[in-house]
């Protein structure tokens, strides 16, 4: 029955492309989470009156984050081609998309981490210091758990943005649903392929959103 409505869709290709998109999104989200978290914590702790107060490091990190956050993603991919070639050995395929995806998304997530950390009650940080906590203990036992709901909803937003980025990367050959929709759908004038790829992307986005919301509610004991 589906064949009548979507005559040009090759379900095997569609499935393979879906897996590629999921792979790119998952890998990129993971590394974005780690790098963004580190950058966000550095941004937070190097602020004045914080444990690592250092205006030079704070300014440099902030500048780095702002620059990479401001470059349009499609341009960032092109700018990073030599770097990707050096790192991955190729500029085609899902793995080749990862450096650009991570470098594009991590600064964005770092900002969200900073916002999340700033929301933590200053009194709680003072209490931890008054108990003789080291900075490392404060990070592990206060900063991260106390901001966890915001960190999770932040990575949810970032992961959804990454799904969009993978589609864009797909246009220049990263693979996945973006490549399928562009090469198979648009360039060969097969509207049903583009449409199906879009629906699959929407499903992926909704699933991510659902998981994110579920976790956020679950861990928030406020």
């Amino acid at each position: 029955m589906l064949e009548n409505f979507l005559p040009n869709v090759d379900w095997q290709d569609m499935w393979a492309a879906t897996l590629e998109t999921i792979y790119m999104t998952a890998m990129a989200t993971f590394f974005t989470f780690v790098i963004g978290l580190i950058l966000g914590i550095v941004l937070f702790l190097t602020q004045p009156h914080q444990a690592w107060a250092n205006s030079v490091v704070n300014w440099l990190t902030g500048a780095l984050v702002n620059i990479f956050r401001s470059i349009p993603f499609i341009i960032l991919i092109i700018l990073l081609i030599p770097f990707t070639q050096f790192l991955i050995g190729t500029i085609r395929g899902p793995n080749a998309a990862l450096p650009a995806l991570i470098i594009g998304a991590a600064p964005f997530y770092a900002r969200l981490v900073l916002i999340a950390l700033k929301e933590i009650d200053k009194g709680v940080l003072e209490a931890a210091r008054s108990m003789g906590a080291t900075t490392w203990t404060v990070i592990r036992k206060v900063l991260l758990p106390e901001s966890l709901p915001a960190l999770v909803s932040g990575i949810t937003v970032t992961a959804i943005a990454l799904v969009g980025y993978t589609a864009m990367a797909g246009v220049i050959g990263a693979g996945g649903l973006g490549t399928l929709a562009f090469l198979d759908g648009f360039q060969r004038n097969r509207g049903d392929v583009t449409l199906t790829a879009t629906v699959v992307i929407l499903v992926i986005v909704f699933v991510i959103q659902y998981i994110g919301d579920f976790l956020t509610v679950r861990i928030d004991k406020r």
Binding site: D121, V124, K141, E146
Partner: peptide, 27 residues
């Protein structure tokens, strides 16, 4: 030399027992 606060400053992410264990973890 420990301290208590006007706004209590408990960790919302921890239970009563876990909050009390916090300074012990630090020690």
């Amino acid at each position: 030399v420990s301290m208590i606060f006007q706004h209590f400053n408990l960790l919302w992410s921890r239970t009563v027992k876990e909050n009390i264990e916090f300074p012990l973890e630090i020690a």
